[in-house]
């Protein structure tokens, strides 16, 4: 893993978040949520600062980060694509939709495209089962997605006409 050097103000930001939660070890998950929300991901160096801020071992932080699928150590794409793999979506063809996204973008689940624009993840039930199969890009939800529509969805973002979805 390439070592990254955190900017002084990033370190301060993380430490401030820890302070906000009274530097309590038991607030680790809240802190991770907030830091990931600000930085987009949780690389090793960030976890080290959090460990310091909460006065706990970095192994513990890493143990927690790797336990919960919501936390990621890899930067997400500018447009994070999530394919719902809940049962309702599965029986309505989510697997084929996922396969098509992987094929179109040439990346595996959990990876980002080389240009950093897209990343693919699977998630479990967004609760829009009426629209199965469902794909989300950022916070935008696409319902009843057919594999043939995948190309169109990607193109929509690639051309940069949708800026409302830049959310982490």
């Amino acid at each position: 893993m390439p070592k990254i050097k955190l900017a002084e103000n990033t370190i301060q930001l993380i430490l401030n978040i820890c302070t906000e939660f009274e530097n309590k070890e038991s607030e680790l998950i809240n802190v991770l949520h907030k830091v990931q929300n600000k930085l987009g991901y949780l690389p090793a160096e960030v976890q080290e600062v959090i460990a310091k801020g909460l006065n706990c071992s970095v192994a513990k932080v890493y143990g927690v980060v790797t336990f919960y699928s919501f936390f990621t150590m890899i930067p997400q794409g500018e447009f994070p694509i999530s394919i719902c793999m809940g049962t309702a979506c599965y029986v309505r063809g989510a697997e084929q939709v996922l396969a098509e996204f992987k094929r179109q973008l040439q990346v595996e689940v959990g990876e980002s495209t080389e240009d950093g624009k897209f990343s693919i993840n699977c998630l479990r039930c967004v609760g829009a089962c009426g629209l199965a199969p469902v794909v989300t890009v950022g916070e935008k939800v696409f319902g009843r997605v057919a594999p043939s529509e995948v190309k169109k969805i990607i193109a929509e973002y690639r051309e940069g006409c949708r800026d409302d979805s830049k959310t982490a």
């Binding site: 309590k24 070890e25 038991s26 607030e27 680790l28 998950i29 809240n30 991770l32 949520h33 143990g63 927690v64 336990f67 919960y68 699928s69 919501f70 936390f71 998630l123 479990r124």
Partner: peptide, 25 residues
Amino acid sequence: LRYGAGAFVCGEETALIHSMEGLRG
């Protein structure tokens, strides 16, 4: 509010409690 972080097992009450305590669920 306490936030889950994507672990189905945290629906189990002891796991849920550990998760709220900042631990692996």
